[in-house]
Design a protein around this nucleic acid. Structure first.
Lengths: 340, 340
DNA sequence: ATACTTTTTGCATTCGAAGTCATTATTAAT
DNA sequence: ATTAATAATGACTTCGAATGCAAAAAGTAT
């Protein structure tokens, strides 16, 4: 097999007896070429196996048609469908995804370096801890950014996020309506903006019902951390009526720990609510009461906003907050007062 | 804020009073530049915020430093850690990931088009149904390919995969040793190479113990499909002693269906084994007996092989098969004969 | 057939860094 | 100090497609 050199527009032009410009125009949508040359060019291009070189095109058009997606490995493993959905949506808009994964803040500078050199058209960041300074840099480089699942209206960036306030209100209201009196909050790590938001909202909503000084324990969003932290806590405290977990994975960890080691009956001995709506949450064994994040809308909104910003760089930053779906499972004890 | 034009090597050169070549060399490792100019250039480059333009570099060097990772959304959702691990490994080798997600065969041609135009240095394909023709095309374009989790020694491509033969042998041997007599195989979809391999290996291994004509049902790797297909099957057949599921997600589906609707005690009424070693498999409620895929080694091997092929295009294709870890859970009835 | 539009075409230039090659500066050797 | 050897430098070209501009071709109207 002969190592064949790549076919360029010049090669096609020569072969087809036209100019390189003509070839270029044939492969550029919306440019006027006569039917005759178009056919001639397409025919020879096809015969020679010509494909326009995207890199050369990027260089001259100053548009890479690539979007950097920055995702923490934790986020990817918790919401694996986000990536494929983002990719699909972006792909429909003619953008390719250049992937960056991060473990917490580690390596952020490095990623930002890469982003400048690759001249991406835009950035979608999931669970990346961008501070003000980072966002300023993006602005200075004219790279539009959409922060996914982060509510930060003050920042000069577009954001899209789930309505945690509303979702957690629904969960808390449900627990209150079912006569739960004592609570435990299992928060995500303080390094996570989403975790902090969910925790604070939960505290506020409980306070709205006159419940204060709610104990808080911290996990890292994982099943194991939930089991460990919960086990430690119950060994030194009395069991709460209900646990409000920052996410489903930890809620499931709590349920398993309660069942396996404390021999508790969930929900009769203790209620548990989660947040996210991951698939195991709906499995028979758990049937978690939770709020399902509107993934499809979130990803679609993120992409739409980014494209809008790319095409219209001067449009002002926008924040979209989408509501999740309250899912009534069987992890909350159905203890209702008389109806009034 | 002024929309600032991008800083090029010429700008830096002018400002630093050197030639563009000098600037270029400073940013290319292993090129000889005097200490004096290097410092001068780095200083002005820094002041001006210069970053080499990766796209221009790609064009001239004919090396995109990008690797296409093609993953089906199903694969990504089942093994979300694969993507981050591949990305991390590739990133260590100075390669960036250009992501393509596919739903089954749909869109493969389109992806291949993109791959040519983007001049990627190589391709890692997970669960993509490349046929001989596809692989030929890659070879003709001199794009090295590594097929992940596919055993295809005949193909002119590198492959890395888990040792299904060994893993399934361990599972079957375990079931046989524990006196299981009747079996049901829950296969993945016939469109999946891995599913076909696992199914055929299971049949062979059972046959090795004199067990033939094992009934087979088909799911799509998902929890729900397993529940549905299993429910349908048991309504018309007698319960087997053990179900051999093509993956953990379906094994869990079977367990839940058996527990919820058939009121069975797993493993006492029926044993279930899976394959993959996903996290829910180890959760208290399931504690599945399964074979854990050696993800870290698989991803590392895939990347190493790809880099090897990129750096040394004439090296011959290689297939690596890595063994998984047998995990003894509690989903197999521990019914042992007298020890002999 | 002529003048006048409109469309199509090709030439030449551009994007930004890398690398070739000839030249100049520096160092080492005598 | 002079020559030889080496290192550093800059002018210029290259990668491959896109596009402004002017020229040519095709189409329309008179």
């Amino acid at each position: 097999m002969v190592k064949q050199k790549r076919v360029t527009s010049y090669d096609v032009a020569r072969e087809a007896g036209v100019s390189q410009s003509a070839v270029s125009r044939v492969f550029r949508p919306g440019f006027s070429v006569s039917k005759k040359t178009r056919e001639k060019v397409l025919k020879t291009a096809n015969e020679m196996g010509y494909r326009p070189n995207a890199i050369a095109r990027m260089l001259i058009t100053q548009q890479s048609s690539m979007v950097a997606v920055i995702i923490s490995s934790r986020a990817n493993e918790n919401y694996p469908e986000v990536l494929s959905q983002l990719n699909k949506n972006l792909s429909d808009k003619g953008k390719r995804v250049l992937l960056f994964t991060l473990d917490d803040t580690e390596g952020l500078d490095d990623v930002m370096e890469q982003i400048w050199t690759f001249q991406v058209d835009g950035v979608i960041a999931l669970a990346a801890h961008f501070d003000h300074n980072n966002l300023e840099q993006f602005a200075r480089h004219n790279v539009p950014v959409v922060l996914y699942n982060r509510h930060a209206p003050e920042a000069n960036a577009n954001t899209v996020s789930c309505n945690h306030d509303k979702g957690i209100k629904q969960l808390v209201d449900k627990l209150i309506a079912t006569q739960h009196k004592t609570f435990l909050i299992l928060s995500g790590p303080t390094s996570s903006d989403v975790a902090n938001e969910r925790r604070e909202v939960a505290i506020t909503k409980l306070a709205g019902h006159g419940i204060t000084d709610v104990p808080i324990i911290y996990g890292d969003y994982s099943y194991d951390s939930a089991r460990n932290e919960f086990a430690k806590w119950v060994s030194e405290n009395t069991l709460p009526d209900a646990v409000i977990s920052a996410n489903d994975a930890m809620a499931i960890g709590i349920i398993d720990e309660a069942r396996e080691n404390l021999k508790l009956d969930i929900p009769n001995d203790m209620s548990v609510v989660g947040f996210d709506g991951i698939s195991p949450a709906s499995w028979f064994t758990y049937q978690l009461t939770t709020v399902k994040q509107p993934m499809e809308q979130l990803t679609k909104a993120a992409v739409d906003m980014l494209i809008e910003r790319i095409e219209n760089p001067d449009s002002s930053p926008e924040s979209r907050v989408l509501s999740g779906t309250f899912i009534e499972g069987k992890s909350v004890k159905a203890r209702t007062r008389q109806r009034d």
